[in-house]
Simulated assay, not measured.
Amino acid sequence: MYELFPLSVASTIRNKKGIKKIFFSQQDGDDFIVYWLNQLFKEAEQVNADNQYITEACTIDKTIPYSMEVPIVGFNSSRFDISLIISQMQCKDWTISNYIGSPTQAKQVIVHHKKLNLKVKFVDMLTYLQPMELKQAAKDFGDGYDDKKGLFPYEAFNTDNVNEVLSKSEPFTMEDFNSSLQKTKISEKDYQIYLEDAKRFKNRWDYLQFYNEQDTYIMIKPLMTLISLQFKYKIDMFSFMSMAACSNAIKYAKAYEDFDINGVYPNFKDNSQKFYLTENYWQSKVRGYESQDKHQRRDTTNNVQDKDFDYFKQLFKDSNCSICGCKFTFDNKPTLDRIDNSKGHSKNNVLPCCLKWITGGLSNVMHRVNRSGI
């Protein structure tokens, strides 16, 4: 029976000052993961500062606040890696503010530092790729793969002898690289590459640090490539949770590509009967708004009610869509669009708009169709 335990952890940080690497292991004590998380928050402070809006006088523009979760990106980390560190993500200084996924797979974990009021977001790079090995990702999206990642025989030691084995200065033997879990053996060529690398280090702990740091460093260029591919369309990759979601956002960006927000566009010709509100229709809408808001845990105390029927009947009669300007007909029925999406459907937080265009992410794109008449 095998049991995984944390041995070491490394990160490569990229900010405006350049690239740096950090490494922590059991040599730093039993709380080395806590030390690593603490250092990550310090690095995240710098990344957050780098992204603040700067005035012409080279000072932070406080009128345009910037506060985004700083991404911490792993590779194939959503299962085993996260499970080994998630218990350290809750302590007196920081806490998990959002967890998306299942008990066995974390798609996204946001950790909030209580004192710094700063958030970091743990995501898996494979979220934005087809299933592949890190070696292949580096080759496809980086500058190619040149065996700099190295090799490490994790099955050559256990919890009882880890320090004894890793403190030795001589290289691992070829047999140490045999894996009973994966049923694999190291090739003579790969072992010779390891021996050349091992010559540069005082002991096996030092080689482990090199191996772990390279594991994260070779992710930088593939990540920057992926980010750049999305940013061509003004898409922030880390605002989405999958490759499909990014593709969807690009589709919408392309739909807006030739849209002039200051342009004058003709409306569709809608010859259907002018809409008039009925009590049954209004009551069904009221129930629907209340259900939506309760599901999203929004306050429904001041939500629109059945007794508001006369007010909204007149509003729909006298108004056009507040977004696209189209008139309301039985082919283009009205609904209520919230002004502040953090609040419920209260009378002072809604505007009339076209029902058939309010479909989640399609809303604005479909209103573009109304405005441009195409």
Rank of each mutant, 00 (worst) to 15 (best):
I186Q: 12
S187D: 10
S187Q: 12
S187L: 14
S187R: 11
E188Y: 13
E188K: 15
K189Y: 13
K189W: 10
Y191I: 04
Q192E: 12
Q192R: 09
I193Q: 08
I193S: 06
Y194F: 09
Y194E: 01
Y194K: 05
Y194G: 00
E196I: 09
E196V: 09
E196L: 13
E196S: 13
D197I: 04
D197M: 08
A198D: 03
A198F: 03
K199P: 06
K199S: 10
R200Q: 15
R200D: 12
F201W: 08
F201E: 03
F201K: 04
F201Y: 13
K202A: 06
K202C: 02
K202F: 08
K202S: 04
N203I: 03
N203S: 08
R204D: 01
R204Q: 03
R204F: 07
R204T: 00
W205Y: 06
D206K: 10
D206L: 09
D206S: 11
Y207L: 06
Y207W: 08
Y207Q: 05
L208V: 02
L208Y: 06
L208C: 05
F210W: 11
F210G: 02
F210I: 02
F210M: 11
Y211Q: 05
Y211C: 04
N212T: 05
N212H: 09
E213I: 10
E213K: 14
E213A: 11
E213F: 12
E213D: 08
D215A: 11
D215V: 06
D215Y: 11
D215K: 11
D215F: 10
T216N: 14
T216F: 15
T216H: 14
